[in-house]
Amino acid sequence: MPTWRCVKQCGACCHLDPTDRPDLEDYLLSTELALYLSMVGDDGWCVHFDKATRECSVYDDRPRFCRVEPDVFQDLFGVEPTELNDFAIACCQEQIEGVYGDRSLEQLRFEREVGIGPISNIDL
């Protein structure tokens, strides 16, 4: 069974361009929306995303809306904890496709890591 997990050095979720997420006001509190918008760099990427390492520089202290946790997704999106795994997988696939492409290395790595892609000896 596919199981969601964050795949290191992907960073697709760090592409925060608000034009890609027109419904931000529907699920973020006004203070969270202000924080979100303050994190968007000129290129649409989070200012905390280190493009060289492809990792978040504030991961341990990242905002609530950057966390894939049952209580956060239930509060923000109305996703029941039992539905979180499938919802998170679908969200990641959509975001990775939008940022990198549907057959990108990032998409292939994600699918392999969560258990929905082909398993091979090739280190993606």
Rank of each mutant, 00 (worst) to 15 (best):
E83S: 09
Q93H: 08
W45P: 01
D17C: 12
A52M: 07
Q74C: 10
L29D: 09
F87Y: 04
R64V: 13
D26C: 15
D26R: 14
M39V: 10
D23H: 06
D61F: 00
E69H: 10
G11Q: 09
L37W: 03
R62L: 10
R103Q: 13
C66Y: 01
S38Y: 10
T3F: 09
L24G: 02
Q95V: 13
G11Y: 07
I122K: 11
D123E: 15
C6D: 03
F110E: 00
N85R: 03
I89T: 09
G11I: 05
W4C: 00
T82A: 15
I122G: 04
E69K: 13
Q9F: 05
Y36M: 09
C13F: 07
Q9I: 13
A52W: 08
D26L: 11
Q95D: 15
Y27F: 13
V72D: 02
A88P: 02
I119R: 10
G98E: 11
G101M: 12
C56N: 01
Q9P: 03
E32L: 12
R112L: 14
C10R: 06
C6V: 07
C56L: 00
V47N: 06
T19Y: 09
L108F: 00
S38T: 10
F110G: 00
R21C: 02
E111G: 00
I122F: 03
V40E: 05
I116A: 02
R21E: 07
Y36A: 04
L33T: 02
V40P: 02
G101R: 12
F65S: 02
L35C: 07
R21S: 04
R67I: 01
E111P: 00
H15V: 04
D42T: 14
Y59A: 14
C91I: 13
D26P: 07
V99N: 12
Q95Y: 08
R103T: 14
L108R: 01
E83F: 05
L29R: 15
G44K: 07
L24N: 00
E80V: 13
S30K: 08
T82C: 06
M39P: 07
D43C: 04
D43N: 12
R67H: 02
S38K: 13
E25Q: 12
G117M: 10
L105M: 06
L37E: 14
G41T: 02
D20K: 12
L108P: 00
L16H: 10
W45D: 02
A88H: 07
C46A: 14
E69R: 11
A52G: 05
I96Y: 06
A12M: 01
G78L: 11
N121M: 08
G98A: 15
V47L: 15
G98K: 10
G117W: 11
T3V: 11
R21N: 06
E113C: 14
V72H: 15
S104F: 00
E80S: 11
L124A: 05
